[in-house]
Write a protein that binds this DNA or RNA. Structure first.
Length: 1039
RNA sequence: GGGCGCGUAGCUCAGUGGGAGAGCACUACGUUGACAUCGUAGGGGUCGCUGGUUCAAUCCCAGCCGCGCCCACCA
């Protein structure tokens, strides 16, 4: 054997062998009927794995390997996620960087093909990384969220939920990402605090009306009274004024009571076409904030949307999908007139309102921030900005202090020309502009400012699905570890909003809905442009459903064509001799006055990537087919994941699992830490502090990284710091074990085939190590059962390094190096067994090095990956006498070593030990172990005597004094000082214990065993102190 | 605003109602036939502050100070 384990060479070799031999396959090594299943959190096919994945998968592999060794029927289900928006973004960025045609130029089909290439590439990388890490997934079952099977599951779930009314389409205000031009869910929005401003503008009352505006302080004293012909509005987004549908005040706000119900004018746009909007009441406005009056722009603000819905206020969409001001529709004058009719009470349909473009010509096509600047400038120029004295403390926009206008809108001060007068004298008043920190929503992928946008989207009725998902966690059917995450889960689930699942992207599961023309209710034989939806799990089914529907309505057969464009439809008509003139844009073609063909178009949207991830625990097991795997492994045993996707993923798996499988998807949800760098900083590409797990594996080996991760994974801790230093610790641990095995091999410990059960032992050291091993096995098992990865790691570290290597290996040497005979044979067998147990117990955490040693040390029936996890009776195997005796020997050796170092006794010098003040039993104990003690404490002789030899250094134990005759070597003063110091500590302890034991309250109320323990400790301390005093007395004579 | 978590040795962090721990770093000595990726020994902490509960508090409770995260959010 080499001195070191060559991880780089051995790990891939070992992994390949396991894989080839089918050691990872579901059910491999199963010896019992119970199953154990984990589904991997599928990594995104956007690139490669980071440290968080390394941690997450290490923890899963530890549990999987452990359970497999315990004989469970184990499945670790692997796979990857198509990660809709993220992957599409990666590909689009790459196209841009390599100056290739963009998505739109390529067209949907070609682009999607290109994303599949990305998927193949990334998946290969990811699986390779998982294998380097040692993950023992059943690769034959590898899945992908967009595979045929999983896509079928997605379709079925969508259709079922649709039919149950739990999925619906509607025009709602959603978070719109103007960069990707898609809706995103609330969870994909990151609010960020940015510097913003709040402008105050006057909305003049219609017809020049006036009212008494009165402000009062808390006591009701009037602080301001003036006649106003306007209502003051504060806003951070002036450009949305164009779409205002009302001004709202709180019903209790007396200041505005006189004008509630009246109309006011939006102070922007062509003067001759100013729009009038009503002043309404709603509970939403806070009278103490701003002016207390809020402009209501239902189509561009979530709070306003709520007010608008409650008050029947129209929501006017102002922006195009890229968040530029709309440039479609009719002339502004015409559109504004339509809006005015709504105010006057004329009713319009949602579609009609959506078609109204209230952006004046001057602003059309501008970016939203450019429009903002123009609106502010125009209002200010017109004198409708609220003006305040130039020294007003809240005014940011003072001469020379105004931040520069920036296109990204972070500081939105437009250039405003000052009047000549102002230049001469300086303005006495300035527009009221408050500088303000505002929370602005950003797309988590795109980074751009999200625009609330009224669009047609698909939603899941999450509230309904959440009910049982909440109940089942309350009932303990799924447990979060650590438990406090349940609170987070409830908090979100109980306030859940409808889940927007449609995305205007190309990469993903296309919504399985086809639209045909709707029946026109006014004309039973005609069709309207409105879309009638057919939801079905295939084109054929949709087509069939549509044919049935239209045939029933018309009373005769019609043909349905899917997604052919108008030209195609015309061609079909010509072939069939259909007259051309009756073909309309509504998607119907007719012949001889009868509708003969109908065109269906599939909804172009795709589903949120989490829609398919939510099915992962059962879709990967074959659902909707009734597969044996589904039956066997669902529900799964544990999900291991990060807290950041509890909402995104865990909650949704709970909902879908319960809905479609009738049962929660997992017993436990273990929330692992977030990996940060060694300074505690979150790893990110922009900070440049990302550590690639592969680099650490290259430098230290996968085992080292795995050990480092496991040993740092503390239940309930949020972050885990990882870096080369910690990983190196793992490597050292491996080397230590490696060399212990090397010694065992040199000493021929494995000459007899090692047994699974502990060998019969007669020697104390062997009895002792058997007990210690059983104890360690129990600790590791218990720690793993409780998901205490750090405890399992440290139990192994202590046992292997501190107990096995530091003491047992040393204790065993005299026997292993001694004459052949029963003692040598026994010790060999015990060492082989104890070492084997170390390998078995460490295998889940450090699979490679342990497997290598397992194979190197002895021929085996099975590789270590399939070895049996020990089930030792720790209590029965513990030998109290052996423990006591070895404990004593260790204390004695420690004491001697300590004194030798303090007295500067040369390491090579052999000195004598004389025991005094002992009982016969203690003397025998020493003599029995004198060989070990001499060797480890580097002694020439172990003797017993009546009195300590003159000039001895004394080590006080409770049942004896160990004297080292060092006459001529020791410095009497130094030794006195040492004894004094030790005695001081002893006395301090005695004092404390005596105090406690004389406290009546303590004696009356403390448990008996605690009192007993304190008494024992006192006795020991007193015995030690007595021996120390004696030693000091002897020295007193000398000095 | 609501919720969660943290503050223990120089650093990173375990831990416990009854004797303060580990790794790394540091100091001294050392190459003794497994291991210098090592060994032996050692220094180093009023366990954030204040109060309460208790026979007993680093641990439980309350408040405060400092730090971090999540959710929501006033136009």
């Amino acid at each position: 054997m080499d001195k070191n384990f060559d991880a780089a060479a051995a790990e891939p070799r070992i992994y390949a062998k396991w894989d080839q031999e089918g050691r990872f396959a579901a059910g491999a090594n199963a010896s019992r009927d119970e199953s154990y299943c984990i589904v991997i959190p599928p990594p995104n096919v956007t690139g490669s794995l980071h440290m968080g994945h390394a941690l997450n998968n290490t923890l899963q592999d530890i549990l999987i390997r452990w359970k497999r060794m315990q004989g469970y029927d184990v499945l670790w289900q692997p796979g990857t996620d198509h990660a809709g928006i993220a992957t599409q973004m990666v590909v689009e960025r790459e196209l841009m960087e390599t100056q290739q045609p963009g998505r739109r130029e390529m067209g949907r089909e070609k682009f999607v093909d290109r994303v599949w290439e990305q998927k193949e590439k990334s998946e290969g990388t990811i699986l390779g990384q998982l294998k380097r890490l040692g993950c023992s997934c059943d690769w034959s079952r590898n899945e992908f969220t967009m595979s045929d099977g999983l896509s079928a599951a997605v379709l079925k779930v969508f259709v079922d939920l649709y039919n149950k009314g739990l999925i619906y389409r509607g025009k709602r205000l959603v978070n719109w990402d103007p960069k990707f031009e898609t809706a995103i869910s609330d969870l994909e929005v990151e609010p960020k605090e940015v510097d913003g401003f709040m402008w105050h503008f006057k909305y003049p009352l219609a017809g020049g009306e006036t009212y008494e505006y009165v402000e009062k302080d808390e006591d009701g004293t009037v602080t301001l009274r003036e006649t106003r012909d306007y209502i003051s509005i504060a806003t951070t987004r002036p450009e949305t004024m164009l779409g205002d549908g009302a001004v709202a005040v709180h019903p209790s706000d007396e200041r505005y009571a006189p004008i509630v119900g009246k109309l006011c004018e939006i102070p922007v746009g062509p003067k001759e076409h100013r729009r009038l909007i009503p002043i309404i009441t709603d509970d939403y406005p806070d009278p103490d904030f701003g002016s207390g009056a809020v402009k209501i722009t239902g189509a561009h603000d979530f709070n306003d949307y709520g007010v608008a819905k409650r008050g029947g206020i129209p929501c006017y969409r102002l922006m195009a999908m890229d968040a530029s001001m709309r440039a479609d529709g009719a002339a502004y004058a015409e559109e504004a007139a339509k809006a005015q009719k709504i105010v006057e009470g004329q009713s319009f349909t949602e579609e009609e309102i959506d078609a109204i473009n209230l952006v004046p010509e001057a602003y059309r096509g501008l970016d939203r921030y450019a429009a903002r600047a123009r609106v502010i400038a125009d209002i200010t120029a017109e004198g409708l900005a609220v003006m305040v004295p130039a020294d007003h403390p809240e005014v940011a926009w003072m001469k020379g202090q105004a931040p520069e206008w920036k296109e990204n809108g972070r500081a939105a001060f437009p250039p405003v020309a000052e009047s000549e007068d102002a230049e001469a004298t300086g303005p006495a008043t300035l527009p009221m502009v408050e500088s303000k920190k505002i929370m602005q929503p950003h797309g988590d992928r795109s980074g751009v400012v999200i625009e609330p946008m009224l669009t047609d989207q698909w939603f899941v009725d999450a509230e309904t699905l959440a009910q049982r998902a909440i109940e089942d966690v309350r009932a303990g059917k799924t447990k979060f570890v650590p438990e406090n995450w349940e609170k987070t889960y409830y908090n979100w689930m109980e306030n859940i909003e409808p889940w927007c699942i449609s995305r205007q992207l190309w990469w993903g599961h296309q919504v399985p809905v086809w639209y045909g023309p709707d029946i026109d209710s006014d004309d039973p034989t005609g069709f309207s442009k409105e879309q009638r939806a057919f939801c079905a799990s295939s084109e054929a089914e949709a087509s069939q459903a549509a044919a049935a529907f239209y045939s029933k309505h018309l009373g005769y057969e019609v043909q349905v064509h899917i997604q052919c464009d108008a030209d195609e439809l015309i061609e079909i008509q010509r072939e069939k001799g259909v007259s051309r003139d009756r073909f309309g844009i509504r998607g119907v073609a007719s012949f001889d006055g009868k509708v003969s063909m109908i065109r269906l178009n599939r909804d172009p949207d795709v589903l949120d990537t989490w829609f398919s991830s939510a099915l992962w625990p059962f879709s990967t097991l074959g659902w909707p087919e009734k597969t044996p795997e589904l039956d066997r492994y669902y529900k799964t045993d544990v999900l291991i994941t990060g807290f950041d996707i509890i909402f995104f993923w865990v909650a949704r798996m709970m909902m879908q699992g319960i809905e479609f499988m009738g049962e929660v998807p997992f017993d436990d949800v273990y929330i692992n830490s977030i990996v940060v760098d060694q300074k505690g900083q979150k790893m990110s590409k922009s900070k440049g502090n990302v550590i690639d797990p592969l680099h650490l594996i290259d430098d230290f080996g996968a085992d080292a990284l795995r050990y480092a991760l496991a040993s740092q994974e503390v239940q309930g801790r949020r972050t885990l710091r990882m870096g080369p230093e910690v990983t190196q610790g793992g490597q050292r641990f491996g080397t230590k074990l490696w060399n212990a095995a090397r010694l065992a091999q040199m000493r021929e410990a494995h000459t007899v085939p090692p047994s699974k059960t502990p060998p019969a032992a007669s020697l104390t050291v062997n009895k002792w190590i058997i007990g210690e091993t059983a104890r360690a096995a129990a600790q590791v098992t218990e720690a793993l059962e409780k998901y205490r990865f750090n405890e399992a790691s440290s139990a192994l570290y202590d046992h292997i390094w501190k107990v096995f290597c530091d003491w047992y290996v040393e204790f065993s040497k005299p026997y292993l190096e001694g004459a052949d005979g029963p003692e040598k044979d026994e010790t060999r067998a015990c060492m082989a067994w104890a070492l084997d147990q170390c390998l078995v117990l460490l295998h889940p955490i450090m699979p490679f090095i342990t497997e290598e040693l397992w194979g190197t040390l002895a021929p085996r029936d099975k590789p270590l990956i399939h070895a049996d996890w020990p089930d030792l009776n720790a209590a029965a195997l513990a030998d109290a006498d052996a423990d006591r005796e070895i404990g004593w020997v260790i204390r004695l050796i420690d004491g001697i070593r300590s004194v030798r170092a303090e007295m500067n006794v040369p390491a090579g010098a052999q000195i004598e030990l004389v025991l005094t003040g002992h009982s016969v039993e203690v003397a025998h104990r020493m003599l029995r172990n004198s060989q070990l003690i001499q060797r480890l404490a580097r002694l020439s002789e172990c003797a017993v005597a009546e009195h300590a030899p003159e000039g001895s250094v004394t080590i006080a134990l409770d049942d004896c004094a160990a004297n080292l005759p060092l006459k001529g070597v020791i410095d009497v003063a130094q030794e006195k000082a040492r004894l004094q110091k030790t005695l001081g500590k002893s006395e301090k302890e005695i004092k404390g214990l005596q105090g406690k034991l004389s406290n009546q309250g303590f004696l009356a109320k403390a448990p008996e065993e605690v009192i007993e323990e304190q008494r024992d400790r006192l006795a020991i301390a007193e015995a030690e102190a007595a021996r120390l005093s004696q030693a000091l007395e002897r020295l007193a004579g000398l000095a």
